[in-house]
C-alpha cells in the first residue's frame, strides 16, 4: 500500500542466536491507532522498539527485512537515526521522566533540536501539557521535580514531552500497565484525541483497551503476527483459531 506510514515485509529480529520476530509483514496506516496484543514474551516490545531503532542500544540485536517508513528503509545505512527518532516518538511502559523539573522535561526535547527562544519554549511547554491533559494539575508547579509526580502524571508528562518535539508517529509500549483506572482512562482519551494528527501504535495487554482505542489491531504469538485487521473484525470475527482462543481467554 503506497499511502501506508509503515510498510514492513519479512521483519526478522534476533537477540544473539535467539530469533524473536519471525518474519512479520504488515502495513500501518497513517493517522490511525493500531493496537498490538499478544501474550507476554511474544515480541510486541521488540517489534515496536525496532520501529524507532531504539533497540540499536542492545548489542546483540539483529534485524533483517524491509522496514519502510514513508518510502525509506529505516535500517538503511543513510538513515539519520537521530532525525528518525524525532519523527517517531515513543512512550515507554514504565514512565521515565528525567530527574529535572516538569518544565525542563519538556524543554529538553526542544533544546536538543536547537530551539532556545524562551517564549517559544514557554508556549510549547504549556500547549504540550494541555494536550496531554496535565496542565491543570501542574501549571502552578512547573519548577517541581518531575519525579515527585504520581505514576499517571509522570506518564502524561512523558507523553507531553514526546508531543513537544512534534513527531509524526507515537509508539506506546504498554503505557498504562503501571497506572490506575482513572489515569488509564485519561490516557485512553488522550490517545483518542491524538489520532487526528498522529499515527499511533500501541502495545497493550488489555483487550478492552485495544478494542476501545484502536481502529486496527494485530495479534502476535511467539514472534509471528498471526492476524491483523480492523479492530472490530479481529475482536468479533477472528479468522484464526489462535486469535479467537486468545481473545476469549482460552490460553494465555
Amino acid at each position: 500500500m503506497d499511502n501506508a506510514a509503515f510498510s514492513i515485509t519479512q521483519m526478522r529480529v534476533s537477540y544473539a542466536r535467539k530469533e524473536v520476530i519471525k518474519g512479520v509483514s504488515v502495513s500501518i496506516m497513517p493517522n490511525t491507532v493500531t493496537a498490538l496484543i499478544g501474550p507476554s514474551g511474544c515480541g510486541k516490545s521488540t517489534f515496536i522498539r525496532s520501529l524507532n531503532r531504539i533497540n540499536d542500544l542492545i548489542p546483540s540485536f539483529r534485524i533483517s527485512g524491509d522496514i519502510i517508513y514513508r518510502q525509506k528503509d529505516i535500517y538503511d545505512k543513510e538513515t539519520d537515526v537521530v532525525e528518525l527518532r524525532r519523527r517517531i516518538g515513543m512512550v515507554f511502559q514504565k514512565p521515565n521522566p528525567f530527574p529535572k523539573s516538569i518544565y525542563e522535561n519538556i524543554a529538553y526535547g526542544l533544546r536538543i533540536h536547537g530551539l532556545n527562544i524562551k517564549d517559544t519554549i514557554d508556549e510549547t511547554v504549556e500547549s504540550s501539557l494541555k494536550k496531554a491533559a496535565l496542565w491543570d494539575e501542574v501549571k502552578d508547579n512547573l519548577k517541581q521535580n518531575a519525579l515527585t509526580l504520581s505514576g499517571g502524571q509522570q506518564q502524561r508528562l512523558c507523553i507531553a514531552r514526546t508531543l513537544a518535539t512534534q513527531p509524526e508517529v507515537i509508539l506506546f509500549d504498554e503505557p498504562c500497565s503501571a497506572l490506575d483506572p482513572i489515569s488509564t482512562a485519561k490516557i485512553e482519551e488522550l490517545i483518542h484525541h491524538l489520532k487526528q494528527s498522529y499515527t499511533i501504535i500501541i502495545v497493550t495487554h488489555n483487550m478492552q483497551q485495544a478494542a476501545r482505542v484502536s481502529e486496527y489491531a494485530g495479534f502476535f504469538l511467539l514472534g509471528e503476527l498471526i492476524e491483523f485487521g480492523k479492530t472490530q473484525e479481529l475482536f468479533t470475527a477472528p479468522k484464526d483459531k489462535r486469535t479467537e482462543d486468545y481473545i476469549t481467554g482460552r490460553f494465555g
Binding site: 524507532n52 531504539i54 542500544l57 537521530v82 532525525e83 527518532r85 524525532r86 519523527r87 516518538g89 515513543m90 515507554f92 514504565k94 521515565n96 521522566p97 528525567f98 530527574p99 529535572k100 529538553y108 526535547g109 533544546r111 536538543i112 533540536h113 512523558c158 514531552r161 514526546t162 518535539t165
Partner: peptide, 25 residues
C-alpha cells in the same frame, strides 16, 4: 537506562543524552 532511552527516543544524539541527561543525573 530508561533516562537514556527517553532522551534518545526524543531524538537526542548520544552526546546530548550524555551531556544533558546522564551527566546531570
Amino acid at each position: 537506562k530508561s533516562y537514556k532511552e527517553g532522551a534518545l527516543a526524543l531524538g537526542a544524539t548520544r552526546w546530548q543524552a550524555m551531556y544533558r541527561v546522564i551527566i546531570h543525573a
